[in-house]
Design a binder for these strands. Structure first.
Lengths: 295, 295
DNA sequence: GGAGTTTACGTCCTCCGTAAAAATA
DNA sequence: TATTTTTACGGAGGACGTAAACTCC
């Protein structure tokens, strides 16, 4: 059974005529005749009585007609809804972010989004930036708002949103506080605290020291910047953290020739088609983009 | 959009695999690949994300899946119902009969039928036998139980059910009652009453007199045998009526070499497919067939 | 004779399968 | 390397259109 056959069948049933149907469907009479007879053959029952030139439905035809109409109606609805997908934001959005961003940057945005797009079923979770990239790569999540990786990934599209300057900070009672500024060598001589291995932020921090063949005296690592700050606050050593996290009793240490920052932004899979909900989220995020990035 | 495409789409969505789908549908992998890509092209949207070897639905695919399943379900239901038509008696039955048969032969049959086949929507009407034949010919009614025509009609199938002997009857005070039997010539000399022109019964009555070049002295005609009998009863003349209608104050007159009867039965259109309800009615009517007809 | 349906036949197009390439695990 | 999807190409089957036969009005 084919859609074209059902279309012809319905048209013939409504017009009681093969030739009128042929005109309406822009085909020839024999084509319609064949379509109907093929349909009848495949269904194993006659659909029309041909009483001279008068065509009328058999009992089987009467049964089929309303169902055929319903089927074609369904198909039309399908097409309409698919076309409307582009205009209407709905469906599910699997979104992830790192803890730090999720706590400091996203709350306002998520609030606006949830209010604006109430039809979206938002699935939000905290994942480490690196794991988030992997989840985007495998398609488990659609968007991730994270610390962007230093190395581009052929399968991932990254969009920078915010610049997050990183500064060196210590407890105000640290010996370095007496110095107006320090150099990398001095800094490396003090014990310090690092984010966990394999994190993008750690790579950013380590790079300048590596370039100068300096080895860092890392006393501890942790996976969350919040706990890293806590450790700095209780005097376990210096660290490099987002400037926005500076607060009592921490103070910034000026380091010669060290101007670090990390790029925060979103990641998506190049191979995936964007859902309407994800597209809306991207647009919302872009509207909060740092103007400095635009330069 | 084609059914085969929807089938492939559903199968791929369920298996997350083109190759497994190909096996299940007894096709090759490239065939499935093409079906899906054609469907995507026609719908104007991508249905699956191809993330490496992992296949998963896009938002558009998620929208289409339940609807596609519904459409195919509908189609399956159609086929089932059409196949079940043969086993189940339902639908509409447009049936007609002449007054006389409807009043004397059908009541019991209709009662049985209505009780046995409660799903049938019975449309029963009284029509003169000749008009009933015409209505069957044009397809307005499906079956007619009537006095069968003398001449066969190429488009109509007639099935004899009952033999209805016709006898000559008069009011018991009629002069002919004194005779033990009469001949055709004597009969023709008395005024009489005839069914309306163009009726099958009238043709049957007139034929023997016509064959003997006798002219009937018809005083009146009427379209119903009941009223014909009434006229005979009040002494307007003799008539020829079904033997079953004989009653006080009517008596039968024995006529030499006159053995008339009419065949009662059903008529259907050879060009029309029998509905299940009509088939059931035919079977019921056949079970009441006069055994003498079987000889 | 005119209109409508069916049948017959030639052509074109579509869809499938095979084979090879590209990409991924 | 082995598996999966995509692309390319050749062949078979189906669908349409033209033309003619048949039927009915």
């Amino acid at each position: 059974m084919e859609f074209s056959q059902l279309k012809a069948f319905i048209c013939v049933a409504e017009n009681h005529s093969f030739s009128i149907t042929a005109n309406q469907l822009h085909l020839t009479q024999p084509a319609i005749s064949k379509r109907i007879s093929t349909l009848e053959e495949q269904l194993g029952c006659i659909l029309f009585d041909r009483i001279g030139h008068h065509i009328q439905l058999t009992q089987a035809g009467e049964v089929l007609l309303p169902r055929a109409i319903k089927v074609l109606q369904e198909v039309e609805d399908c097409k309409k809804q698919l076309h409307r997908l582009n205009d209407c934001v709905s469906g599910k959005l699997a979104l992830a972010s790192s803890h730090h961003i999720g706590l400091h940057r996203l709350p306002e945005i998520l609030k606006t989004y949830a209010k604006e797009y109430q039809d979206v079923d938002l699935d939000f979770q905290f994942i480490e930036s690196e794991q988030a990239c992997e989840a985007v790569r495998t398609g488990q999540i659609e968007l991730a708002v994270i610390t962007l990786p230093l190395e581009p990934d052929g399968k991932l599209q990254t969009i920078e949103l915010w610049n997050d300057p990183l500064i060196c900070m210590v407890n105000k009672e640290h010996p370095m506080c007496t110095l107006s500024e320090v150099c990398l060598e001095q800094l490396a001589s003090y014990s310090m605290l690092l984010p966990e291995k394999e994190t993008f932020t750690r790579q950013i921090i380590e790079r300048p020291f590596f370039n100068h063949q300096l080895k860092l005296k890392a006393r501890m690592t942790t996976n969350e910047l919040e706990s890293l700050r806590m450790m700095v606050e209780i005097g376990l050593g210096w660290s490099i953290l987002p400037k926005s996290m500076l607060r009592e009793p921490l103070v910034e240490i000026q380091v010669v020739d060290l101007h670090l920052d990390r790029k925060l932004g979103l990641v998506r899979n190049k191979d995936r088609i964007l859902s309407s909900s994800a597209e809306a989220m991207i647009n919302l995020l872009l509207s909060t983009r740092d103007v400095r990035l635009g330069v």
